[in-house]
Nucleic acid binder design. Structure first.
Length: 510
DNA sequence: ACGACAGACTT
DNA sequence: AAGTACATGAAG
């Protein structure tokens, strides 16, 4: 690291030059706070300023990290991105329907900022109000449904988050310059409404490359009979939304990979369409369609590159092929994070995976689903090739006070299953209020529950929330994979993509 | 903090 | 002739 040039630093911070972001930190004597070079705050006087190369140094010198530019967190992490993150979180919540039944005030409370500020963010970055943006998104989704399905327009209005058709028609015309039916007329499609369940087909696109083979292998190895089904080109499963409260919707989907079109064709069957948008969002999450894998792999390559150079020097001397693995060959293009439908399910599956092999865990989950999962009636669905029984994942209520005498397992671990389930039951009030599973289901809240350790929590975060920055260092498979390297990998450098590193490492074991 | 106003929403 | 599906104005 080069010694800091005060003059360069001064110019960089005064111009808030993003190219210097992360290369040095500005500490201010008068306030006791240190900032990144790009901090939007009014620049302090040069007399009061001390420069540091790293955030840690500044912190140990007694300064506290600035709350606006967040110099304490790693580059690229959610907090590091600061302002952008608040906006991104807001956008994510709105895309999930946060403004359909709740007010902007409630949304801003969830984000931990003032309503005024959210408005301002939207105005400067997107040029519209949060509500207008939300409506636009709703209309976009409606447009997709009009194009690709045959649902009645009333149902589409409902599915897109409108509570009256009148309002939907009006808003749609304003946003899209066309009436809903005008779009419908130009559509050809194959969807049916067979009475008990709505069935529709959607195309869900992703950004290539997509390493389907890896995703397929991973999901197939863990697929639970009656809950999930997996073929060479498809994955499907049952679902519930929101899981286990009244007025929830349920159904199942099958996603077929269409490589040459960079998309999945997804057949969805659902009892009512009210939460369709959230369901589609969750399918996108499970298949990890929104990941920018090029960016992720570039970042990982950069983070692990130093390591790679060190290894390469020894390559010639080493005759064992498995031992000359380099960080570069570790990365396979388009690798994604296979998700689990809900955080709760991920937690239960993680507990059942404690201390046993993947196959043993698989059998336990299978039994659990078979005994406690309620079945979905698929008789009315003659066109469906999957005519076998389908079951939902057991609800917290069905497990909370269950003796679980249908399989052999240490009593303490059975108690852990009950602990987690009871935790969910006691939270019902909270989850009722905020429908979104992703945002309010925090595995960190499980810490006080007996029998739940860091591995379980991290596993649930990785697979249930698709948190991109979880490194499962304690996992047996990961340990095995790490042994294939001559020198230890600098896994911390992989932030904020440590989950992807974890997946890449697991993938090596095949 | 407050009121006027625009726009969101339902019937 | 009655019923269905969608669009739209008026009022609050």
């Amino acid at each position: 690291m080069l010694p800091l040039d005060f003059e360069v630093c001064r110019k960089a911070r005064l111009s808030r030059d993003p190219r210097f972001d992360g290369t040095f930190f500005t500490a201010v004597k008068t306030t006791g706070i240190f900032c990144r070079s790009i901090c939007p705050a009014t620049p302090p006087k040069e007399i009061n300023v001390t420069y540091f190369t790293t955030a840690t140094e500044a912190a140990s010198a007694g300064y506290r990290p600035c709350l606006r530019c967040r110099p304490d967190s790693a580059p690229g992490s959610p907090a590091w991105k600061g302002v952008n993150t608040t906006l991104e979180r807001a956008i994510a919540l709105i895309n999930d329907g946060a403004l359909q039944q709740h007010s902007l005030t409630e949304l801003s409370e969830r984000l931990g900022v003032s309503e005024r500020y959210v408005r301002k963010l939207f105005n400067t970055h997107l040029g519209t109000s949060p509500k207008t943006y939300a409506l636009y998104q709703q209309c976009l989704f409606a447009k997709q449904l009009l194009h690709q399905t045959q649902l009645p327009i009333t149902e589409i209005a409902l599915a897109s988050g409108f509570n009256s058709v009148r309002r939907f028609n009006d808003c749609f015309k304003k946003q899209m310059q066309l009436t809903p039916s005008a779009i419908r007329r130009s559509a050809k499609n194959m969807s049916v409404n067979n009475g008990a369940l709505h069935t529709l087909q959607l195309q869900l696109h992703y950004r290539p490359p997509y390493h389907w083979q890896h995703m397929q292998r991973f999901l197939r190895a863990r697929a639970i009979p009656q809950l999930e089904w997996c073929t060479d080109n498809s994955y499907g499963r049952t679902f519930e939304w929101p899981s286990s409260y009244d007025s929830g919707s349920y159904g199942y989907f099958t996603a077929y990979h269409v490589a040459d079109k960079h998309c999945f064709t997804v057949d969805i069957s659902v009892n009512e369409v009210t939460h369709l948008k959230s369901i589609v969002n969750n399918i996108r999450r499970i298949l990890d369609l929104d990941a920018d894998t090029r960016r992720i792999e570039n970042d990982l390559r950069a983070a692990l590159f130093t390591e790679e150079k060190n290894i390469k020097k020894n390559t010639n001397k080493n005759t064992n092929e498995r031992n000359i693995t380099t960080a570069i060959t570790l990365l396979e293009a388009g690798l994604r994070l296979p998700g689990i439908w809900s955080v709760y399910e991920a937690g239960i599956r993680a507990i059942l995976g404690q201390q046993v092999s993947v196959t043993a865990a698989h059998r336990l989950v299978g039994t659990l689903v078979e005994v406690l999962g309620s079945g979905i009636d698929t008789e009315v669905d003659p066109g469906d090739e999957n005519t076998s029984i389908k079951r939902l994942f057991p609800t917290p209520a069905s497990l909370a006070n269950n003796e679980i005498d249908f399989f052999k397992m240490p009593a303490s671990r059975k108690q852990t299953l009950r602990n987690l389930s009871q935790h969910y039951l006691s939270q019902e009030g909270l989850t009722q209020r905020c429908v979104n599973l992703l945002q309010n289901d925090q595995p960190d809240d499980w810490q006080s529950l007996k029998g739940i350790g860091p591995w379980t929590i991290n596993y649930a975060k990785l697979r249930g929330q698709s948190n991109p920055d979880i490194f499962l260092g304690g996992d047996l498979g990961i340990k095995k994979a790490l042994e294939l390297f001559d020198k230890p990998l600098a896994t911390d450098n992989a932030s904020p993509w440590r989950s992807y590193l974890t997946m890449h490492l697991w993938n090596m074991l095949y």
